[in-house]
Design a protein around this nucleic acid. Sequence first.
DNA 1: ATATTTTGACCGGCG
DNA 2: ACGCCGGTCAAAATA
Length: 335
Amino acid sequence: MNSFGGRLNTRFYFDNSSRSLDSNDNKNEERKWDLFEFKNGVESPKQSFITPFYTSSFTSTNPNQFLDPPFFSFNSNIISSSGSYSDFHFKEEKANDTNLNFQSQIWPTSSSISGNKKEESTKSQALDWNVESQQKPIDFSIEISKTEPKSIQSPQSHSNFNSIQATNEQSRYQDGYNWRKYGQKLIKRSNNPQSYYKCTYPNCPTKKKVEKDLNGIITKIIYKEKHNHTMPTNFQKSSSNSFNNTIFEHSNRFQPYSECSFIEHEQEQGSLICESRIDHENEPEAKRWKLDEVESEAISSGLSKTLEEPRLVVETKVTLIYLMMDTNGENTGKK
DNA sequence: ATATTTTGACCGGCG
DNA sequence: ACGCCGGTCAAAATA
């Protein structure tokens, strides 16, 4: 099994529509959405992210706050006290017609994804963050699988059962919150299906859109509005060791490769800010949600703070960048 | 029985 | 006024 042949190709947007922006200002236009884009890199090698992300240098016992807006909260169980991956799950379960398993599992490059999706996903489920994988970069691939999460356990992942089980238990929370799908549309612009989710918490206005490409790979996630509640308790429990703290703890430990194709902001108190470039094709859609939310607050208080506190932006974005993997053989993350 | 997903219909903004 | 398109609704299906 080619264990490290893929690249993540997902964009994460945060609806920053509350910002006062001049639509004629390109820079501002871009900033309407906080975008984190994971590219397969096939079509846009510029956006392939090369990161020296190594198990030994990343520590988190927080499995779920990673992608919570503004810190996404994939189910990521990273344990590095021993310098090895215990598990690292990106899972978005039961989204749409398939289970979107955000797992750091093996995923072929997009060129090889076509074909029997189920078979490929089954293969990919055999990921094992075992000793052999320790010296390889994490592959932040996304698996789209029709297989039930409970069947994900692979014989090889003997050392990861706990985290897998934990992941399953938390499958409903994905990014820490509960979502209910309320619609799906085929978006003409991109010809991709787009799913619409609402936070299931009573009166919570938060929504998110998840767009997938033809291979079922999530290409974009847009959050709208902010949660008016805290993260579900049982989720918080497992996330007690705040990933935010992790971010601050570890973001300075890594240096992105020079190949980093993000827009690097020159200022920000000497810190590196990497932003992925925003395709113009995405702007109309972003605009649309923005227009709906002129009066709304940003997607989360965290994000609002982010906007007001450049340092936070720096730390967050830089850290996320480390999680964007280029799995080219020659770029194994070694500096 | 309940919660969630699916999916066609509907609505409203925009050109 | 019309059609297109994205977003939402809601009944049915499914888990």
